[in-house]
Amino acid sequence: MAFLSYLISGLGLGSVYAIIALGYSMVYGIAKMLNFAHGDIIMAGAYAAFFAMTAAGMPLLAAALISMVICTLLGVTIERLAYKPLRQASSLSVLITAIGVSYFLQNASQLMFGSDTKIFPSVLSGSFSLFNGRLSVSYLSVLTIVICVVIMSVLTLFINKTKTGKAMRACSEDKGAAVLMGINVDAIISITFAIGSGLAAIAAILLCATYPSVYPTLGSMPGIRAFTAAVFGGIGSIPGAFLGGLMLGIIETLAKAYISTQLSDAIVFAVLIIVLLIRPTGLLGKKVSVKV
């Protein structure tokens, strides 16, 4: 029974990673860049929700909405100001810029909100029991898993069925050819950043509901783990981000429970290294074969 309960909380944690990993993966798939500031957008989302709930006294859903709007605007603005001018630059310049943006956001929030940890209001506590009380499942885990599955399904439909989704896939394959179809590639990249950043806000709230402390570097570790999850599943692939996130959450939780809390990160990254040695493109990464 203990195993089952770890598994469920692992799935919950993994769902949060999956939602964050989606942001990394979609941006990578379309803009071909690693947005290392993605974790800090989570931090911004957490602060936005925190102040909306405490200072403005808003209910959770309204705060979540505000947080999503702020993160979306922030993501699109960062892309416009920091990344767009580098469209023709080497990928190394873009990577360094992204790391710079990450530090900028962390320091800006420290300047604005202070470095002290703020306690996020308790939003969804409580649990229900199964098997005559032998297994206790928190509502939060269930909610997180459900939200993650819904996001994944909606996004998959969006990418495969809508015109914008098809344009996104075209941009991800060949931007030069996409432009010749009349697709505004800059607009598609903006939309991608908007979606990824909006998802980061949802992840921020789910994360703060589990670990209720808000501080300027809050997004770094979840960001790095979710990035790992995206690579693990195959970066650029939406189902890959989903699978990678869930696997990472489960491995981390089980490692903490059965092996060692201190070693859990080492174990997670060891698994990543092994997977990449066997499948360099990640679990669901595409091996592109094109006939010429």
């Binding site: 098809k166 896939r169 075209a170 394959e173 060949d174 030069g176 050819a177 010749l180 595409k286 592109v288 094109v290 010429v292």
Partner: peptide
């Protein structure tokens, strides 16, 4: 375009 550049994955 030169080299056709169809969207191979679609």
């Amino acid at each position: 375009p030169e080299g056709r550049r169809v969207f191979a994955q679609q």
